[in-house]
């Protein structure tokens, strides 16, 4: 809870005016959409083989509704943190169940997953990590340039953000890969991917950094300068550490988004995760297996970044949260 007001509201879901209509809606919805035909319906049929047609729909809807009701009953009795984690876990289990219902060949996944990780994941991580580092440096330079009194620097920075935020990332990859050779520079696929991702994300992050720096009241700059501190020290010791609070959440978004946008460099034939997921499935017509595996790997990487972001946020919030 971010804003506490020290009032005990009766939790929404314990009020009959809320949970009765809610459960009724779930029951009605499931019945209407003929839940009996679904995977859960087949499960219910196993328990009650006599049911069929409409009775099966009704039975399935009732089964799910009772399950949901019982779940809410249990969850509401737990402390807040456990509620959050339990609900998260249940939803994750549902998604996994959804994947499981595809009738996947786990033998095939087992055979391919090693290569997917050692070649695909490693390439994806390598490209993303290098691009993230370069993009951060570009963004810092871009933001400082935009806030400077140097007309040339400002002009370059404004043009840079305009161009690289304005062109589709895919286009940038092609332009570097196919365009630069026209000037006599042949660029390999991986450096192409890194260059395009760095430039594009650097442009977005320039704006994040600029807004973060501008969010610091000018009294901070004045106080530090009046103490005799040099502009660079004021920036690195006073302004930037404070703007981190504002900068980090959207930057975390950018990092997670870059992780997945790195799949675009597969168009120039880089053997990263997405490329392998598409090609490895082809030979045996096992596309779904590879897609599901790759999806889960992407998701796991995002979760790691999410956790890292949370830690960094806590660090920079130290002074603000008493």
């Amino acid at each position: 809870m971010h804003f506490r007001d020290n009032i005990d509201y009766p939790p929404m879901l314990t009020r009959p005016t809320v949970f009765v209509p809610l459960l009724t809606a779930i029951f009605g919805g499931l019945w209407w959409f003929q839940a009996g035909n679904s995977a859960i319906g087949r499960l219910v049929l196993g328990m009650a083989p006599w049911a069929e047609g409409n009775p099966l729909n009704l039975l399935t809807a009732a089964f799910v509704t009772v399950l949901v009701g019982f779940n809410i009953f249990v969850v509401m009795r737990l402390p807040l943190r456990q509620q959050v984690w339990l609900v998260w876990g249940e939803l994750a289990a549902l998604i996994l169940l959804f994947f499981y219902s595809f009738d996947l060949s786990f033998a095939f996944i087992q055979r391919k997953i090693g290569f997917l990780i050692t070649q695909g994941l490693v390439t994806t991580l390598y490209i993303s990590a290098v691009s993230i580092a370069i993009a951060t440096v570009l963004a810092l330079m871009g933001a400082v340039a935009k806030l400077s009194s140097n007309g040339i620097a400002q002009g370059i920075a404004h043009f840079y953000t305009s161009l690289f935020r304005g062109l589709p990332l895919l286009m940038q990859i092609y332009m570097i890969y196919l365009g630069l050779p026209q000037l006599g520079y042949v660029v390999d696929a991986v450096p192409t991917g890194i260059a395009a991702l760095s430039l594009c994300y650097g442009a977005y992050m320039t704006e994040i950094f600029r807004a973060g720096i501008e969010s610091i009241p000018k009294g901070q700059w004045e106080a530090a300068r009046a103490l005799g501190m040099r502009p660079t020290s004021v920036m690195t010791r006073i302004i930037l550490p404070q703007s981190m609070r504002v900068i980090i959440p959207p930057t975390g978004n950018q990092f997670i988004s870059m992780l997945k946008d790195s799949s675009l460099v597969s168009v120039v034939g880089v053997w990263e995760l997405m490329y392998l997921a598409r090609t490895q499935g082809q030979t045996e017509f096992r596309h779904i297996e590879m897609m599901v595996t790759a999806s889960l790997i992407y998701w796991l990487m995002s979760i790691v970044l999410e956790l890292a972001q949370k830690r960094i946020e806590t660090h920079f919030n130290k002074a603000a949260t008493r």
């Binding site: 009294g219 901070q220 106080a223 300068r225 009046a226 103490l227 005799g228 404070q242 002074a319 603000a320």
Partner: peptide, 21 residues
């Protein structure tokens, strides 16, 4: 300017302490 600022101390209406330190 920096030489002069080293000889002049200033206190502001809004304190302007560095909140992260």
């Amino acid at each position: 300017v920096e030489d002069i600022r080293r000889k002049v101390g200033m206190v502001f209406q809004q304190f302007n302490l560095f909140p992260h330190l």
